[in-house]
């Protein structure tokens, strides 16, 4: 491609392009037409003709497997459940990093440039890093509103949609609702179905495959949910503290009551006065557990726990948070086991 910036156009890359094409007869005919013009064709027309061939090559290549890029590993896990080996999936944010603060590194552009489908969490979770990546990707398929752009929040039950006046005095509040919605298995089911429908629409030849895998995921999730419900049932109504507002959907689903947060406001680091308030609240209401995401510092939660006789539980909000969580089921297995053990420990 560098030849586009040089005065002469070498033919060697054309051979590579030709080898990628699906219909060698048409390709050869087109190429011979271009090559016959040899020295008579102006350089600009040669470049344009080569561009046509390159676009054709890219389209033909994309037809085999859907290239899916997701904003987070959770969405990648759900896409993998329904897409199986008929798609290639890659996520931008890692499960152990704060999804609000991802560096829009140029290396992500290489993945986004080839993506057929971009699945995002939405609700402004990725507002600080995804828009420049989309713009710079030079991929029209994944721009907002295009066919290859899927906002998963449209399928999910959204909590904490603020009412009344919203200002940044409330911290880094999400005006469209809390974006950590994937931590409710019901939402996981709906998102997976939405992804399967989108993939089926984009690749009709594999529609039955995607729908069958979606139904299978639904069944497996229903079975797993019974186990998770049983494990969490004894702890319904228990009060907890969390670091960030990452758990409203999880806590609503399993009946946990989040009384306060380590952050005084979303995105604002703990302050001494608020920490004291949290200590008093925990003592007054006999709260023993503090949930902390893996990307937050443990010093403040640990000091609160030691002051209140409580315990800090580092639970994972995302697939990939630790090595053993490689899919959506393992995320709930891991967290629910951890929570059940922690509640049993503190009584």
């Amino acid at each position: 491609m560098s030849s586009f910036f040089s005065s002469s156009f070498p033919w060697e890359p054309m051979e590579r392009i030709r080898s990628n094409m699906t219909n060698p007869y048409e390709t050869r005919a087109a190429l011979s037409g271009v090559l016959n013009l040899g020295g008579f064709m102006p350089k600009l027309l040669r470049a344009l003709a080569a561009l046509v061939l390159m676009i054709g090559a890219g389209t033909a290549h994309a037809a085999s497997k859907l290239n899916v890029v997701t904003a987070t590993e959770d969405l990648a896990a759900l896409a993998r459940e329904v897409g199986g080996d008929h798609i290639n999936v890659d996520s931008i944010a890692k499960g152990y990093q704060d999804p609000h603060f991802v560096e829009p590194k140029p290396s992500f552009l290489l993945r986004l440039q080839k993506a057929d489908l971009l699945i995002v969490v939405g609700l402004q979770l990725e507002i600080g890093w995804l828009p420049p990546l989309q713009t710079q990707s030079r991929n029209s398929k994944i721009q907002v509103g295009a066919n290859g752009y899927l906002d998963a929040s449209q399928f999910a039950k959204i909590l904490e949609i603020p009412t009344g006046q919203i200002t940044r005095a409330m911290g880094d509040v999400h005006p469209l609702g809390n974006p950590h919605y994937w931590l409710d298995p019901g939402n996981g089911r709906r998102i997976a179905k939405g992804i399967a429908d989108k993939m089926a629409e984009m690749q009709p030849g594999d529609a039955s495959y995607f729908q069958q895998r979606s139904a299978d995921f639904d069944n497996r999730l229903a079975a797993a949910e019974k186990g998770w419900e049983a494990k969490m049932a004894p702890f319904r109504g228990r009060k907890i503290i969390t670091y960030h507002r990452s758990w409203p959907n999880f806590c609503e689903h399993y009946g946990l009551d989040v009384v306060d947060y380590i952050e005084p406001r979303p995105g604002i680091p703990p302050t001494p006065s608020h920490t004291l308030e949290v200590i008093n609240t925990m003592k007054r209401e006999n709260i023993k557990l503090i949930f902390v995401e893996p990307y937050f510092d443990l010093r403040t939660p640990n000091s609160i726990a030691s002051a209140t006789g409580g315990d800090v539980v580092q639970i994972m909000p995302s697939v990939g948070g630790v090595k053993e969580i490689t899919n959506y089921f393992q995320l709930f297995d891991y967290d629910i086991n951890l929570i059940a053990n922690a509640f049993n420990k503190v009584k």
Binding site: G122, S153, Q154, A156, K157, I158, L159, L176, G177
Partner: peptide
């Protein structure tokens, strides 16, 4: 406040946040 709203709309969950 939102939880209350969500609770009131238990049969009418809010899908999509836009």
């Amino acid at each position: 406040q939102v939880s209350t709203a969500a609770g009131a709309g238990e049969n009418l969950p809010v899908y999509g946040g836009a």
